[in-house]
Simulated assay, not measured.
Amino acid sequence: MPRALITGITGQDGLYLSELLLSKGYEVYGLIRGQNNPKFDLVRETVPGVQLVTGDLTDMSSLIRALEQAQPDEVYNLGAISFVAYSWENALLTSEVTGKGVLNLLEAVRLYAHDDLSKVRFYQASSSEMFGKVQEVPQRESTLLWPRSPYGVAKVFGHYMTINYRESYGMHASSGILFNHESPRRGPEFVTRKVSQAVARISLGLQEHITLGNLDAKRDWGFAGDYVEAMWRMLQQDDADDYVVATGETHSIRELLDVAFRRVGIDEWAHLVKQDPRFMRPAEVDLLIGDPAKAHEQLGWKPQVGFEQLVEMMVDHDVAEQRELARL
């Protein structure tokens, strides 16, 4: 029975990846920070087969202890402070967790598996935010990185550190450069979930409008449940490498609003959406679109859920959830 350790187990990717690995017969361990973590029960209820171990990406000794407890064949580093807007408010903490945390975990794996580095395969969750001020369209593995947020900068550090450990120590360490991926499990601070929740509440008469920032920003949005399959496939390859994971399509916030409102029978939404400069980024990333050709060819991976299907899935989930909450 293969064993895996997942950091960031409480996030949407951690939950979907846990379900995938459990379905494949893995023994899955999830790293969680603190015994009183408010999401402890969420993990227990969603993926009861996962064994939780305590640890902190900023504390290498705790990571070594977690590795010794889990004895993993595969380590998936999904843990990060991942809300881009928050990274400007807390650039130092974002750098410590999202950037230096990768180094801490890589070094912990190296020390843990010092006698045979091939016994542990490592996955790093890199991000399309690393491309930032994009230097070519679409973005691929060789595209120059030009991050435009403290979060993006921290992800670049972790990305190159993963490459460095692969090249310096021969570690089987791969990075997935994942473009935006969403689901009903996405946090409500992210724009897709903010929209799906607000649209649900507006349709039920529980909310009057939604306030957003730049409606013209474009993203390559996919389904998180599809993307964790690509993570797993990377660690099944004979040789470690880096892969862009994306749909190859781009859609604007306006298109997101079109699909979401249409799902609840509202065709004209302009009067329901307000814009506020507070939700504008200090340095905007205007157009992200990935080229997933390498993942298609080498991993045999392709996304299964399209943009409209994804948005409708999220809206349907939030309509049901908000209706149930309104009854309580």
Rank of each mutant, 00 (worst) to 15 (best):
Tyr227Arg: 06
Phe223Pro: 00
Lys218Val: 12
Leu215Asn: 11
Val191His: 12
Gly222Met: 15
Ile202Trp: 06
Ala224Lys: 10
Arg219Pro: 11
Val228Tyr: 05
Lys194Glu: 04
Glu229Phe: 05
Glu229Lys: 15
Glu189Cys: 04
Asp216Ser: 14
Ala224Pro: 02
Thr211Tyr: 08
Gly225Ile: 01
Leu212Phe: 09
Asp216Val: 05
Tyr227Val: 15
Gly222Pro: 00
Thr192Arg: 00
Gly225Ala: 10
Asp220Val: 12
Ala217Phe: 09
Leu212Trp: 07
Asp216Tyr: 03
Ile202Met: 10
Val199Lys: 01
Ile210Pro: 03
Arg201Ala: 08
Ala200Val: 13
Gly222Arg: 01
Val195Glu: 01
Gly222Ile: 05
Thr192Ser: 08
Trp221Pro: 00
Val191Ile: 15
Thr211Trp: 12
Trp232Lys: 08
Val191Phe: 14
Ala217Met: 14
Val228Phe: 12
Val195Met: 06
Met231Gly: 10
Arg201Val: 03
Phe190Gly: 00
Ala198Ser: 14
Gln197Gly: 01
Gln207Val: 07
Ala198Lys: 05
Ala198Arg: 04
Gly222Glu: 02
Arg219Tyr: 15
Gly205Leu: 09
Glu189Gly: 02
Gly225Tyr: 00
Asp226Ala: 06
Tyr227Ala: 15
Ala230Val: 10
Ser196Asp: 06
Thr211Glu: 13
Met231Ile: 14
Asn214Ile: 01
Gln207Lys: 15
Gln197Arg: 05
Gln207Asp: 04
Tyr227Glu: 12
Arg193Thr: 12
Val195Ile: 15
Ala198Val: 07
Asp226Cys: 10
Tyr227Ile: 13
Val191Tyr: 15
Gly222Lys: 02
Asp216Lys: 12
Arg219Trp: 14
Leu215Gly: 10
Glu229Tyr: 11
Asp220Tyr: 10
Thr192Asn: 04
Ala224Asp: 03
Phe190Cys: 03
